[in-house]
């Protein structure tokens, strides 16, 4: 080994060659792992678990997903239980708002439970959405898929609800389960259950 290397000067005193080599290897390892951290940080990731299929609850996951995609985040929305209806091409156009259990409704709960009230509440909300220029569920789904959002349909729920695999919007990912969702959640910077 060359004696003009300044690091070997330390070797004379406190460290032997093997210890020094081990230290250098450790420094190299740490530098490599720091470099990895730097590149991984560039990609923000978000996973949303969408569990509700009422008209009002279909909006937040899709609005957040499409906006996050506009930030170039990698986004997965895993739709399970009633949330699956949002991805169902037919059912997504007929999502209902519940008039019962919402104290902000202009009618008392006892009246809200009368048949036809859910349909009326949904029509009222639909009218407000049209007047306000708020996007439709279908528009938000198309937009999200266009922007590269991975809309996933829980396979267990598909079978539970007895839905056909081709009943969903084109571009929706089927054949996925809780393990897939967990894997994305573990890698994500933002995880939401809606």
């Amino acid at each position: 080994m060359s004696t003009d290397n300044p690091s070997t000067a330390i070797d004379d005193g406190e460290f032997d060659a093997a210890e020094l080599r081990a230290l250098r290897e450790r420094v190299d390892e740490l530098e490599e792992s720091i470099a990895d951290v730097g590149t991984e940080d560039d990609d923000q990731k978000m996973t949303i678990i969408s569990t509700k299929g009422s008209f009002d609850m279909a909006y937040p996951p899709l609005i957040l997903a499409s906006t996050a995609a506009a930030f170039d985040w990698e986004v997965v929305v895993f739709h399970t239980f009633w949330g699956l209806d949002i991805l169902h091409e037919e059912k997504s156009k007929n999502l209902k708002l519940s008039a019962v259990g919402n104290p902000n409704m202009p009618v008392p709960n006892a009246l809200a439970a009368v048949p036809g009230m859910d349909a009326m509440a949904t029509r009222m909300m639909q009218k407000r959405i049209d007047e306000n220029g708020t996007a439709t569920i279908e528009e938000l789904i198309d937009l999200s898929l266009d922007l590269g959002v991975d809309l996933q349909a829980c396979q267990m729920t598909i079978e539970l609800m007895d839905y056909e695999d081709d009943a969903f919007y084109e571009g929706v990912t089927t054949g996925v389960g809780a393990a897939t969702a967990l894997q994305h959640m573990a890698e994500s910077d933002v995880q939401l259950l809606i």
């Binding site: 906006t67 995609a69 220029g133 708020t134």
Partner: peptide, 14 residues
């Protein structure tokens, strides 16, 4: 014009 959240941001991005 006439469109609300998230459309202005998302369409700007596109």
């Amino acid at each position: 014009k006439g469109q609300s959240c998230p459309m202005p941001v998302v369409k700007t991005k596109q």
